[in-house]
């Protein structure tokens, strides 16, 4: 029950209750995403600076990327974001079972993303490419920067996916015990915002790390 107070003219005013403030929770989540945007923004600025310094090296290094695995992960993440959006819509419509199924599908796809990522990194390690590896140190300065940024960015992104998976199990628990329901679904909705943000970062990782190697330039 929110508190109602009256001004001198006896007009009623509702006092926002901090325990039950959906708009506040939404704003809080967006602010958190801004900090995330600035965090990843820092890496993207670093990328921009080194891309400018070592353009040809970056294009060359990008040719080492496995486009099939990268593409697969892009599609996986895209569908997972779609599933989570569906989960929210079904929850709003009080179709809890369907909502839960879509949430479980999102978890499965997130785990699939990590597995693909594992194979992708393993392949690179297999080629002797990891930070500070002898092979990498033998390559150009630009390749060192490219892979330094690649491992940092995809590593941090992967960490966000893993934290997301943990959080999804927590959300699932809340759905199960009824704390998230058709009337109160802000936690689920906020988590979907986080997941979309993680997806958004990936959308920009793809062109900058995977696709530049396919250009006809930079081969000289």
């Amino acid at each position: 029950m929110s508190e109602i107070i009256y001004d001198k003219n006896n007009n009623a005013h509702e006092v926002t209750d901090f325990n039950d403030d959906v708009e506040g929770a939404r704003q809080g989540m967006w602010l958190f995403l801004f900090t995330e945007l600035m965090l990843f923004g820092g890496i993207f600025i670093t990328y921009a600076v080194y891309f400018f310094d070592f353009t040809d090296d970056f294009v060359q290094a990008s040719k080492n990327m496995n486009l099939w695995l990268g593409g697969l992960n892009t599609v996986i993440l895209l569908i997972s974001a779609g599933c989570l959006a569906m989960s929210v819509v079904f929850m709003k419509a009080n179709k809890v079972l369907e909502s839960k199924r879509f949430l479980l599908a999102t978890i499965a796809l997130a785990i699939a993303f990590i597995v693909v990522k594992y194979f992708e990194w393993s392949a690179e390690f297999h080629h002797g490419i990891w930070p500070d590896s002898p092979t990498l140190r033998g390559m150009s300065d630009g390749a060192n920067m490219y892979f330094g940024l690649y491992f940092t960015l995809t590593g941090l992104h992967g960490l966000h996916i893993i934290l997301g998976i943990v959080a999804m199990f927590w959300v699932l628990g809340k759905v199960n015990n009824g704390e998230i329901n058709a009337k109160k679904f802000i936690v689920l909705e906020n988590f979907a915002l986080y997941w979309d943000y993680v997806h958004l970062v990936w959308v920009f990782v793809v062109p900058l790390f995977y696709m530049i190697g396919l250009s006809t330039g930079g081969a000289h």
């Binding site: 923004g41 820092g42 310094d53 070592f54 930070p131 330094g148 940092t152």
Partner: peptide
């Protein structure tokens, strides 16, 4: 968050040697 990522990059630099700030690897 910008200093957060800077500190993380510096940690990665020391732990993994990613080279972003190390001039011997082309870093700035």
């Amino acid at each position: 968050p910008v200093v957060g990522i800077t500190l993380l990059l510096a940690i990665f630099e020391r732990v993994f040697g990613i080279g972003i700030f190390d001039p011997t690897k082309g870093g700035d």
